[in-house]
Computed example of a mutant assay.
Amino acid sequence: MLETVKTLCALDGVSGTEDSVRAYIKSRVAALSADVRTDAMGNLIVFKKGRKTPSKSLMLCAHMDEVGIIVTGITEDGYLKFDFAGGIDRRVVIGKPVFIGAHKVFGVIGNKAYHLVKRDERDKIPSVEEMYIDIGAKGREEAAKLVSLGDTGAFDGSILEFGNGFIKAKALDDRVGCAALLELLETDLPVDCTFVFTVQEEAGTRGAFGASFSVRPDIALIVEGTTAADLPSVSSAKRVCSLGKGVVIPFMDRSTIYNRELYTLLTSLADKNSIPWQTKTYISGGTDAGAVQRSRAGVMTAGIAAPLRNLHSPSSVGCVSDFDAVYKLAEVFLKEIGERY
């Protein structure tokens, strides 16, 4: 599981440009006896038969895209103007390296030099309009040969294992979910299942909405990463969940009230199989579940997630034991669905 997570996180797949992530997953499933297709949105949809065909169709879903930047302009001096693709905290991007476009042009995000900052500006977070990306170009013409408007940029993908089972990487949200689905696909499945690797989740859960109409599931499990906020500066009432305490099984977030029957099933399966789990103690965030649940006449939808610190930043932090718990719970969920339906 860990090696798959690391491989996926090293790939760039900002919302709308998930090609390299999709290509890698597609290469891994090519040898399987599975039906593989890519829809008009770019979702990768993989159906694999299991030992049983249930009466209710099942879909597992994880998103391939990550947050990043998108180029919106080039100045006369050769600097790039940009906006964010996905929700990013402006405080964490200044001075961070990015790789832009298909040719991975290197750049560094900057803003006004500190000695020019006025006293009343020092406690303010610069707006994205005040920032720029330096790609080392001498002027607009030179920069335009390297980068085009609309190109996306991903943060530096360096990966580091540290501490007691922790990992730092970009795009842990949601390459952890993709890794869990991919590892499950490579097993002998207990039940027929459609695995959907979605696009543009960070830009408004756009891929999942179309995929849900295409796949037409009765039951869906969304496998995600979720914000932990278990930091000294955050009060206990707002910490959401914690690293190292197992898989997160949410009952609600800002886009979904999860199916109560499936929520109860997941928590009981975790207890029965000694899988450490927790729930969100602060309602926050939203996932593909919101789009899936509201598709067609409605879908029975549940979610599981790995808790992550510094979500939507160049340096997300996760705990390997939590990743393993996510995989294990998804595995026993598939088995239970096969026995129930």
Score class of each variant (00 low, 15 high):
E3C: 11
T4M: 15
V5W: 10
C9T: 11
G13N: 04
D19N: 15
V21Y: 07
Y24G: 06
R28F: 10
A30I: 04
L32N: 02
L32V: 07
D39Q: 10
A40W: 14
M41Q: 11
I45W: 09
K49S: 12
T53V: 15
P54F: 04
S55I: 11
S57H: 10
S57T: 13
M59R: 05
L60F: 07
C61H: 04
A62M: 01
A62L: 02
G68Q: 01
V71P: 00
G73N: 06
D77V: 09
G78T: 06
G78K: 06
G78D: 02
Y79V: 08
D83N: 13
G87F: 10
I88H: 02
G101Y: 05
H103G: 12
V105F: 06
A113G: 10
H115G: 05
L116Y: 12
V117M: 08
V117G: 07
D120H: 15
E121L: 08
D134V: 06
D134H: 03
I135H: 03
R140N: 06
A144M: 13
S148Q: 13
D151Q: 04
D151P: 06
G153M: 00
A154M: 04
F155M: 02
I159M: 06
N164H: 10
N164M: 13
G165D: 05
F166Q: 13
A169S: 09
R175Y: 03
C178V: 06
L182S: 04
L182G: 04
L184E: 02
L185C: 06
L189Q: 07
V191W: 04
C193L: 08
T194D: 08
T194G: 08
F195R: 01
F197P: 00
G210T: 15
P217G: 10
P217W: 09
D218F: 10
I222A: 04
E224M: 01
G225A: 07
G225W: 01
A229P: 11
L231Q: 11
L231A: 11
S235G: 15
S236A: 15
A237V: 15
A237I: 15
R239C: 14
V240A: 14
S242V: 09
S242D: 11
L243N: 06
G244V: 07
K245S: 12
F251Y: 14
M252V: 14
D253N: 08
R254H: 11
T256I: 02
I257F: 09
Y258W: 05
R260E: 13
T264L: 14
L265C: 05
L265Y: 03
N273D: 02
T287A: 06
G303W: 06
A306M: 15
R309M: 10
P314R: 00
G318F: 03
F323A: 11
D324C: 14
D324L: 13
K328Q: 11
A330C: 06
A330P: 03
E339Q: 12
